[in-house]
Design a protein around this nucleic acid. Structure first.
Length: 564
DNA sequence: GTAGGGTTAG
């Protein structure tokens, strides 16, 4: 900045041709606004003093303002201001910067307006504008619009492909992302480390361990440098796919660990029910002087919730406040979940009333679930009203209410709710889960019987249940053992045949259906209820909808034919 | 001077 000030002074005191002075000032401004060594206040002052800032300078201002950590709409206001002057026509850079700002804010409405403007200005074929639009729509959950934009790109480069793959992964459409990765290879576009991060992310969402391992080998083969993002993605993928040991290996080998890396590891332990490991990792993080963020605490509180550590949960909540972290909806959710597990519904309800943001349906649903658990009709009905007033079309809400009335033997009301559902045309969505065993992807849908091994799987599940019982544990205990960290004990109760692996796999964290069950565990609470949930899982009719053959990936050869 | 990456409750 000292040098820049000198140059600035020089520019002002010399009689330079206007065009030269204007060019120099815009560069000086850009440096002050955008360089890590710059000075935002200086830049702002300089900008306000410019007689006639050019489009370049407006762009610098817009870009700089969207880099501020506070998510304000300033970049959009600046853009509007620029248009209002009537003297400036935005160029493709302007549009790209504003679109990026809209993506960060997930501002779909503003984004669409900027999109229109981009068309008016004739930037529909600009690759930067196009990719920004893909990103924007994916970010705002308009994944079809994102795909439309992507398809319109004539010459798709690695950035365009990566954006779309990442968009799919982030919206939970993992298999679409993986299919697109395949298409990218067919198209002959070389993936880079950014692409691979998104692909790994998609593997994590889909729970495709074999594919995830293949990608890992691919990275090594290609000697793609392991940066913090790639390693974090791998930690997350292995953890989500049930390989917590491998996740930990990769984590330990990381030279640089930032808050996201630590959070991934903590979250990994938490979803495996390894509360001690999660909490110890958190302590190590503090020792390493890495400042935890909100997601870190989601992991920590999740670990507490899954192990019924209520006092610890309260302690971490206040610790979180000490760190100055503003509780997000997810964090409130973790805490409500934790409190609902203890049997102190009043405390959970009182906690919700202290929230400084409006509770979303998830929060109400957790409370309602808590009421259902104890047949607590009184607050249950009023909570249900609140829930249905903000979310009328979710079948889950009605089913919970039905269950609440059923738990209190109010059969007339059960009928009424069912009729209400019918009148509104609301149909329940059956639960679904996937597991990959020996290179096959098995998909299970509730009440479906198409899996070729359905009967054997059912038998295997029964077998596990029986052996768990005969070992002196109820199925509940087995689940609890598994989820409070005594994984070995739980694992020892199973054999290693493939059929059992499928069955056991279902019991592990990666199947969404099981995750739901595990999260519903009331470790300190009502055993009867949990046993009921688990027995539902055991006797669930299991079927494969489709059986996709994964290619056996040999040695990480990465030609497109070897993929899938 | 532009576009793409990792962690988030039910």
């Amino acid at each position: 900045m000292r040098l820049l000030r000198q140059i600035h002074a020089h520019t002002c005191t010399r009689l330079l041709p206007t065009s030269v002075a204007s060019f120099a000032l815009s560069k000086i401004h850009a440096f002050a606004a955008l360089s890590p060594l710059g000075d935002a206040t200086y830049a702002r002052r300089l900008f306000s003093q410019m007689d006639n800032p050019n489009v370049f300078s407006w762009n610098s201002m817009i870009r700089a303002s969207s880099r501020q950590p506070s998510s304000s709409k300033e970049p959009i206001f600046l853009f509007k201001k620029m248009l209002r002057t009537g003297r400036f026509i935005p160029n493709s850079y302007t549009i790209a910067f504003v679109l990026k700002a809209c993506s960060v804010l997930a501002a779909a409405g503003e984004g669409r307006q900027v999109h229109k403007r981009a068309l008016q200005c004739g930037f529909e074929s600009n690759p930067f504008v196009q990719t920004s639009l893909v990103k924007l729509y994916a970010r705002c959950d308009y994944i079809c619009d994102a795909r439309k934009m992507f398809d319109e790109i004539a010459d798709k480069n690695v950035v365009a492909w990566s954006t779309m793959i990442s968009g799919y992964a982030k919206t939970g459409l993992a298999s679409e992302g993986l299919i697109l990765f395949r298409e990218m290879q067919v198209a002959g576009v070389e993936p880079d480390e950014v692409t691979m991060v998104s692909v790994i992310s998609a593997c994590a969402v889909a729970g495709t361990l074999e594919l995830g391992k293949w990608v890992h080998t691919f990275l090594k083969k290609r000697k793609i440098e392991m940066d913090v993002e790639l390693s974090t993605a791998l930690v997350n993928m292995y953890a989500k796919c049930g390989c917590i040991d491998r996740a930990q290996e990769i984590f330990k080998a990381m030279n640089v660990k930032d808050a996201k890396a630590w959070s991934s590891m903590i979250m990994g332990f938490a979803i495996h029910g390894l509360a001690d490991d999660a909490l110890n990792t958190f302590s190590e993080m503090e020792d390493a002087m890495v400042k935890p963020n909100d997601v870190t605490f989601v992991g920590v509180l999740l670990a507490c919730a899954h192990s019924g550590l209520v006092p610890a949960g309260r302690m971490y909540w206040s610790k979180m406040m000490d760190y100055g972290i503003e509780p997000s909806m997810e964090l409130y959710g973790c805490m409500v979940d934790l409190l609902c597990r203890t049997g102190t519904l009043d405390e959970a309800y009182a906690f919700v009333e202290t929230m400084h943001i409006t509770p979303n349906p998830v929060i109400w649903r957790m409370l309602l679930g808590g009421c259902k658990k104890r047949g607590n009709l009184d607050p249950g009905e009023s909570i249900s009203r609140k829930l249905l007033s903000v979310e009328q079309n979710n079948a889950e809400n009605y089913i919970l209410l039905v269950a609440l009335y059923a738990s209190a033997s109010q059969w007339d009301k059960v009928k009424l709710v069912r009729k209400d559902m019918q009148d509104r045309g609301i149909k329940p969505v059956p639960g679904c889960s996937y597991i990959e065993v020996g290179g096959f992807l098995h998909k299970f849908l509730m009440a479906d019987w198409c899996h070729p091994d359905a009967h054997e799987i059912k038998e295997a599940l029964k077998d596990i249940s029986n052996r768990v019982s005969s070992a002196g544990h109820s199925p509940l205990t087995s689940f609890v053992l598994h989820n409070i960290g005594e994984q070995e004990k739980a694992t020892a109760l199973c054999e290693h045949s493939e059929r059992l692996a499928i069955a056991y796999g279902l019991l592990k964290t990666k199947a969404p259906m099981i995750i739901r069950v595990v999260k519903n565990l009331r470790v300190c609470g009502d055993c009867h209820e949990v046993t009921k949930i688990i027995s539902k899982v055991y006797s669930r009719e299991i079927v494969v909808r489709d059986r996709v053959r994964f290619h056996k990936f040999s040695e990480g050869i990465c030609s497109c034919n070897d993929f899938w």
